[in-house]
Nucleic acid binder design. Sequence first.
DNA 1: CTGATCCTTCGGCCGGCGCCGAGGCGTCCA
DNA 2: TGGACGCCTCGGCGCCGGCCGAAGGATCAG
Lengths: 223, 223
Amino acid sequence: MSDVSRIAALLGDPARANILTALMDGRALTAKELAFAAHVSPQTTSGHLAKLTDAQLLSVERQGRHRYYRLFSPLVGQMLESVMALAASASPAPRTWRGPEGLRTARTCYDHLAGRLGVALADSLTEAGHIVLSPDGGETTASGDAFLAEFGAHPADGRRVLCRPCLDWSERRPHLAGRVGAALCHRCLDLGWLQRQRDTRAVAITPAGKRGFAEVFGISCNW
Amino acid sequence: MSDVSRIAALLGDPARANILTALMDGRALTAKELAFAAHVSPQTTSGHLAKLTDAQLLSVERQGRHRYYRLFSPLVGQMLESVMALAASASPAPRTWRGPEGLRTARTCYDHLAGRLGVALADSLTEAGHIVLSPDGGETTASGDAFLAEFGAHPADGRRVLCRPCLDWSERRPHLAGRVGAALCHRCLDLGWLQRQRDTRAVAITPAGKRGFAEVFGISCNW
DNA sequence: CTGATCCTTCGGCCGGCGCCGAGGCGTCCA
DNA sequence: TGGACGCCTCGGCGCCGGCCGAAGGATCAG
């Protein structure tokens, strides 16, 4: 009958939900690794993977005797995020985060930074009076413009919004989006403070980054 | 174990998915009406409603011998939309839309117009050369600025993006968002062309609106 | 008070699905 | 070429959960 229930029923089994959650950061994992993540036997996992692949929630790639599974499209990840956002807000007692730890530390959200690092940056800039964020928008101050220029983060031209808060679903607090958020992210990658992970939305903080974030933003990344 | 599966399992039953879909437009319906929508008996429906309410996906309001159920928060609607978006893209043959018909005709999407009307407006403006939309942004032309001024739709000031496409999940084609989209929506309401429905994101097209949309935009709203 | 309507709870039936053991196929390596 | 490994399919078990009939509180009209 309903398309919704067909998809949702697939997520409704804990083993399958674990599988999808484990893949949320965009990596490709083998069936065995997923069996471990899902806490069920390989045979059972195989059945689940077949269902998820049939429904086009996952895609497979054979490589030798391994099969690598990954999320079929970004839409799948978005849907998972929206379910998680609801689960987080609806659960009586906020639960601890169970997804990949790397995603929680620092990740990209479209073209800007999210996770603990993204939230910490937004906090730092706000406390320093460089930006002002409100629920429906945000702006940079004069000191903020100067600070960004000195840091080398030059927002691109364009009509896109300059600066706005974006609710971080793992931290439940806003991080920084818009042209400023994109420029910051770009600059940190250029400086070698951050490094993209292959096939992943997670980003790694390099030793140089650890020093830099502490000096420039007062953020000690001991997460 | 997983929060995701707890929520998803609730959507995974066809009867419950029907219930939630029927409520997607923000209306409040009685248990009996929902039983009809879900195609199951009132007793069964009662059980489903209890579960959905416990999980804070629905809220209840008693009124005499009736109980009115509605979506607990906009987050629930968003989640449903994201699941539907995926279902639409993943299903082998695109399915026909099964949600409330009113929502498909014309509804608000945040502060702008969506649904058939929203898409038709975007098409009309594009064909007339008043706006240009591309996947990653959009802008108004000189003729468009003049047209909007004459129509009385004055975009608000601010840093928010002026004009951008927003994918319409019921039509699967873009409608118009940004300050221009908001101004258009506001003006149509002011003119009495559209009327908000109580407690609903659906909007009704008035007789005056039907004439107006035909004259000004060349849209005959015979949907 | 009486009957009608709305909704719920209880109890029992039954189908569907998740689970694993056993077995088979393909791949890689020595 | 034999063995180890990764993965899948098949078959049967067991349970969870959806379903409805029956019965009971709540509310409203007359």
